[in-house]
């Protein structure tokens, strides 16, 4: 059944669900111990983790193509949310339509493993194609803002996130322990774990604000504690799921910890600019899709190229 997973990856997936069982147990115990306090938000958040982990695990475990389709769908949700948030010109409806069509094409390059096309399709070809479509429509008022914001979103939600899918297209022989799915699980788990770790460290020890203009709740204590936790966790996990060796293991965690933080505050800055608290309401307790994949938009391409440079 779990044909797409190596034994290590399957074991790791089971471990993720064990963590969720513990998280649900803690929420239940908290509710029992403090009946006067409201844990609805926390419970909703953990329940949403169950749903997200469940869907993700099913997609990863069953089949490689299904995994890629699933990741393409995540890109679609993120892009749709981005286009729904930002001001768009009515004249650009057809340009947006082309941008949506880029998703299946980009993930097709991933599915057939054509690295050269995968890496230039959006930064080069769509970068040229979208303005071409815009000038044939001919609306020049707000042209720069529209062209810039469309391509920025395309890079963030499709190009960057598709790097996670390309981990599945890398040669399996180079990573017999974890396989492609092991790499995706490693990246996905550490990125989300880093978010949670930064949050927990910040909640318990946070004193000194790190970036108050963008994200007033983020602290140096949360940032350092989170990055350190992620680095240590990566050190433990990397030998079992990735081809990384020696110093490369903790360095991968350091990279994911730092990049995850920047990806998170990048979307925070976008929301602050637009005057919004959450990017959407699709995921109870979390907000929107962009709120959940914000860190991944930075960790996915950086982790991919780190790994690609060192081992492929």
């Amino acid at each position: 059944m779990f044909s797409a997973l190596t034994p290590n990856a399957a074991l790791f997936l089971a471990g993720i669900f064990a963590i969720l069982v513990i998280a649900s147990g803690v929420v239940f115990a908290l509710g029992r111990a403090h009946p006067d306090r409201d844990y609805t938000e926390l419970a909703a958040r953990v329940n949403s983790w169950w749903v997200m982990a469940g869907v993700f695990a099913a997609a990863m475990a069953l089949d490689r193509v299904l995994s890629i389709v699933f990741l393409a769908f995540v890109s679609f949700l993120a892009m749709k949310e981005y286009f729904s948030l930002i001001p768009t010109r009515r004249a650009d409806r057809r340009v947006l339509f082309w941008a949506y069509l880029a998703i299946p094409v980009q993930f097709y390059w991933v599915a057939i493993g054509w690295y050269g096309m995968f890496i230039i399709f959006i930064p080069v070809y769509l970068f040229l194609l979208l303005p071409l479509r815009m000038v044939t429509i001919g609306e020049t008022t707000g042209f720069l803002r529209a062209a810039g914001s469309l391509h920025w979103g395309l890079m963030l939600t499709v190009f960057n996130l598709s790097h996670m899918a390309f981990l599945l297209a890398l040669p399996q022989a180079a990573n017999p322990a974890g396989g492609g799915a092991g790499l995706v699980l490693f990246l996905m788990f550490l990125t989300q774990f880093n978010d949670v770790a930064q949050y927990v460290w910040g909640k318990t020890l946070g004193r000194h604000k790190i970036i108050p203009k963008v994200s007033p709740k983020k602290t140096w204590e949360g940032f350092i504690g989170g990055v350190a936790t992620t680095t240590l966790t990566a050190w433990l996990l990397a030998p079992h799921l990735t081809p990384l060796t020696g110093w490369e293991d903790p360095a991968a965690g350091l990279l994911i910890g730092l990049a995850g933080f920047v990806g998170d505050v990048n979307i925070s800055a976008l929301k602050r600019d637009l005057g919004l608290k959450d990017s959407g309401s699709l995921i109870p307790g979390h907000g929107g899709v962009l709120d959940r994949v914000d860190s991944l938009t930075f960790t996915a391409p950086l982790f991919f190229h780190y790994l690609y440079y060192l081992h492929y």
Binding site: S84, L96, F97, Y100, L282
Partner: peptide, 18 residues
């Protein structure tokens, strides 16, 4: 709100928006 952006009166192409 938003459906007029996704499929307005004068355009047959559906563009997804939340």
């Amino acid at each position: 709100h938003g459906l007029g952006k996704a499929l307005p009166k004068d355009d047959p192409i559906l563009v997804p928006f939340f």
